[in-house]
C-alpha cells in the first residue's frame, strides 16, 4: 500500500509539470497583461515595469525562469499586490481556507450520511420525501443566496453570531460560512448515500445478517453503510479539492481572508504569477485527494488491492 502511494505521488510529478506548462502558456495567449489599466501608462513606464518583472524577455526564457524559481519554492512576486510574493499570499490564506473546507467536508459527510441512511431505511415514506426535497433545495439554491440569508437570520435578527470576520478556530466565526459551504455537499452526499444504501439493504449479505437475527442498527451501520459509503467517498475526493481551495462568494460575504478570492482577482487582473500559484494549489489538491480516495477504497473494501 505504501509503495503504491509513493508510486502514485511520483506519477503526479509529470502531471503537475504538464498542468503548470499548459497554464503558463495559456495565460500568455490570453490578450492583455498585468499592467493594462483603463488609463494607459506612459510607454516608458510600461517598459520599465516589464523590465522589472522580466516580462520583456522571450517567453521561453520567462518559462524557464519561472520553473527555476518554483523549484526553489519561490512563486514570484504578485503583479498586483506588489509588496507580496505569491507564496506569501497563498501561505497566509490557505490555512484559513483549509480550516473552512475541512469543517464543511466533515459536516457534509456526517449530516449527509445520516440523512441518506434515514431516507433509505424509510424509503418512500414522508421522511424519505422530506430528505429528498431538502437535498434538492440544497443543491439548487446558490451559496450567494444562502450566505446573506443566514447572516440576516443569525447575525442581524437573532444576534447570535457575528455577520462576518475571521479568527482561527473560532466556532462562532466559522459556523455560518461552514454551513453555507457544506449545504450543497450535504445534499449531494445524502442523495448518494440514500441510493447506495437502498441497494446495500437489498443485498444478499444483508439478508443473511437479518436471517441470523442481528439487530437492525448493527446491520445498517456495520453491514450496509460501509458498502454504501463508497460512492460518496468517490464524490468527496474532487469535492474536497474544491472546498479546501476556498470559495470567493463565501469569503467575500463573510469577510474571510482565504484564497478563494485570488482565483477571480488574479484572472481578472492578468496577475500571471498569482494565477499560476492558484492553479498549482488546486492541481496539488486534486491529485492528493484522488490518491486519498483510492487509498480509502482499499481501506473500505478488502477486495480492492493495489500492488
Amino acid at each position: 500500500m505504501l509503495s503504491y502511494a509513493l508510486k502514485r505521488l511520483l506519477g503526479a510529478v509529470p502531471t503537475l509539470f504538464f498542468i503548470i506548462t499548459a497554464a503558463f502558456f495559456l495565460m500568455r495567449v490570453a490578450p492583455g497583461g498585468p499592467f493594462d489599466q483603463e488609463r494607459t501608462l506612459e510607454p516608458s513606464v510600461m517598459a520599465n515595469l516589464n523590465a522589472t518583472f522580466g516580462l520583456d524577455r522571450p517567453l521561453h526564457e520567462q518559462y524557464l525562469m519561472y520553473l527555476g524559481n518554483l523549484a526553489r519554492g519561490d512563486m514570484g512576486p504578485s503583479f498586483v499586490y506588489r509588496d507580496f510574493k505569491v507564496h506569501e499570499l497563498l501561505g497566509s490564506g490557505l490555512p484559513v481556507s483549509i480550516q473552512l473546507g475541512l469543517s464543511a467536508l466533515l459536516l457534509a459527510f456526517i449530516v449527509g450520511a445520516t440523512l441518506g441512511c434515514v431516507a433509505a431505511l424509510r424509503q418512500n415514506s414522508w421522511v424519505d420525501y422530506l430528505v429528498i426535497s431538502v437535498a434538492t433545495f440544497g443543491i439548487t439554491v446558490p451559496n450567494f443566496v444562502v450566505a446573506p440569508v443566514l447572516a440576516l437570520i443569525f447575525a442581524v435578527w437573532l444576534d447570535l453570531l457575528p455577520a462576518g470576520g475571521w479568527q482561527n478556530w473560532s466556532p462562532e466565526h466559522m459556523l455560518l460560512p461552514v454551513v453555507t459551504l457544506a449545504l450543497p455537499q450535504v445534499a449531494v452526499v445524502a442523495r448518494l448515500i440514500r441510493g447506495a444504501m437502498i441497494e446495500a439493504l437489498r443485498s444478499d449479505h444483508v439478508r443473511t445478517a437479518r436471517a441470523y437475527g442481528l439487530p437492525t442498527r448493527r446491520i445498517v451501520i456495520y453491514h450496509a453503510l460501509r458498502a454504501a459509503s463508497l460512492p460518496a467517498v468517490t464524490y468527496l475526493g474532487p469535492a474536497a479539492a474544491a472546498l479546501l481551495t476556498g470559495s470567493i462568494v463565501v469569503e467575500q460575504i463573510f469577510g474571510i481572508p482565504g484564497i478563494g478570492r485570488y482565483f477571480v482577482q488574479g484572472a481578472l487582473n492578468r496577475d500571471y504569477t498569482l494565477v499560476m500559484g492558484t492553479v498549482i494549489i488546486v492541481a496539488v489538491f486534486v491529485v492528493l485527494f484522488n490518491l486519498l480516495v483510492d487509498l480509502a477504497y482499499a481501506a473500505l473494501d478488502p477486495r480492492v488491492c493495489y500492488d
Binding site: 443473511t208 437475527g213 442481528l214 453491514h223
Partner: peptide
C-alpha cells in the same frame, strides 16, 4: 423473531458469492 433466527432456525442461501459480506 431475532431470538429464533440464526439460532433455532438457520438458513443457507443460493449464492455463496454474495450471501457473505465481502467487506468482513
Amino acid at each position: 423473531l431475532n431470538q429464533l433466527r440464526g439460532k433455532k432456525i438457520t438458513m443457507i442461501f443460493q449464492e455463496p458469492m454474495t450471501s457473505l459480506d465481502p467487506l468482513y
